[in-house]
Amino acid sequence: MPESVDVCYLYDGSYDGFLSCVFESYRRRETPAAILPEDAPHPLCPTRPIPSDPALAARVTKGLSEKAGSRTEATVRFAFLTILPDKEMRILAFIRKAMKTGPRILRMMADDTAYPVYRAVAHMREEAHLFTGFLRFSEADGMLYAVIDPKNRVLPLIADHFADRFPRETFLIFDKTHREAMLCRNGEYALIAGEDFTPPPPDRTERETRALWTRFFETLSIAERKNPLCQRTHLPLRYRTYMTEFLSPEKAPPSGGPAQLTGSF
């Protein structure tokens, strides 16, 4: 890595914004002390706001793909969605290393720079995979709604799966952690930054279907084999917040009037 300088880059929190910082770091041949979203608590060191520039971001993406392969580029894209601590600097270090090694970086799974990035991405993929199973839709007026609270921003990873699976449905998945929604109609979808989402109250059919499912779920367990530890290993408690079969009727998640997604869209 080139010389470290005592400057923090500030960016708008978007992926393009982050890649613009990467470009800036290359252009100035310097390694900033930190790369932080504008709304993060400001550190003591001098800051430099870096405007988000899609053209520069595209150049970084193109350069990385050509030099280190499209799988490396995808790894960087996914790594940006993870909860890796200090992810911006770690990804910057990863990009610099990948530009030197080329596609060989993909085999360097135990490398000090690459390992934390791969681990964070693997953690996110695992979480995304679990949500393809644990996510629960409710129906109201012919539309489907779901709320999830993942640690990583898994919505871009699971969107294709659900769009493909329900090609004729209209549905919405709301990521409560990152306040982001996926809206899908007839297999076409968009990801939208939203403020909040309140699911509509369940109607009679919905309540009956939930009751049938809950009964099925409870019936299936064999008393002689009861093993809550094994259940928690496969289905940690944090995933159960919005899962129909774990909601007692009184503990149903808060719901208001008609479905509402408020926010900037």
């Binding site: 329900f166 090609p167 004729r168 779920f217 009861k226 496969h234 289905l235």
Partner: peptide, 19 residues
């Protein structure tokens, strides 16, 4: 009209006996 299958399979929940 509805539905897909994925080769690795998906678990949708786990019962009290851990299955």
């Amino acid at each position: 009209a509805i539905g897909s299958a994925v080769s690795y399979g998906i678990c949708h929940t786990f019962t009290a006996d851990g299955r």
